[in-house]
Amino acid sequence: MLNFLSLLKNEQVKLYSRFSTWSMYIILASIIILAGMITAIFGDVDTEGYGNDWRAELQAENEQLQAEMEESEFAIHENSINKNNYYLEQDIKPQPYDAWAFTSEFSMLGFMLSLFMVIIASGLIAGEFRWGTIKLLFIRPISRTKIWLSKYITIMITTLSMFVFMFLFAMILGSLLFGINGLSPSMVQLSGNEWEQVNIVKEILSQYGLILVELVIMATLAFMISSLFRNSAMAIGLTIFLMFAGASVVIYLSEYDWAKFILFANIDLQPYFGPGQPMIEGMTLTFSVIVLLTYYVVFLLASWFAFTKRDVAGH
């Protein structure tokens, strides 16, 4: 066990001794700072909030929006009016824009995170082969399986730390720019065709949960490719190509019945939880989960087998 923790420590040290890893954090931080500044300077967000007679304020606002719409056909405020009406009907006092609302906007960075994890996963094994250090790792009294596992777990640890970093960074910047209202914030958002009040923390977590499925599978795929070919450029290139092209391939092949077994027909679980359709008719959540799990296990086994059983021969 002590041994294994040392292996994890080694992986962390190697990862964070390189600028490329730090640059990922810098990119995430830059995007968040940029978005924060744009929102603060140009964004039409209300950080003041409503007073005690917020009901009257909302009504007045609606009347004004209605008037604008009648005057000009270019003014489209239906969404805002409906949202205000929802607040009035449900008797919910609208909360001002704050750090929570700001943070919830960064689920779009999930794709970025997947990209970064694919890059990291591709390098963990292939890097050792490129530097030639794999030989010095394998001649220690530690099984190859343990080394393999330490590398795989490193992907998970890094995903978690990047996620926590993003969350904390957005929260801190959001608090500085927009303030923060309470610890259990909610917001009203369109869910399908209906307005709905949701807890922001829960919303952030569930968005990330779905992103995490794709992230873990793609990172494991990259990990497998780099273990099979011992080459990170190939692992990064192939995985990112599949991330972009996978869905189109499924659509292209969707007339065939077996298309529903393709990884990329199943990797996006969003349609089962919200608006939208699964890629191929008749697919269910259970089906997709089973398909994903099967791929996942195959990827892991192939990567483990290639890493632990093959000779480390010369170039």
Partner: peptide, 8 residues
Amino acid sequence: VENPEMYP
């Protein structure tokens, strides 16, 4: 083994 390789 072969060259003395380290993490550069």
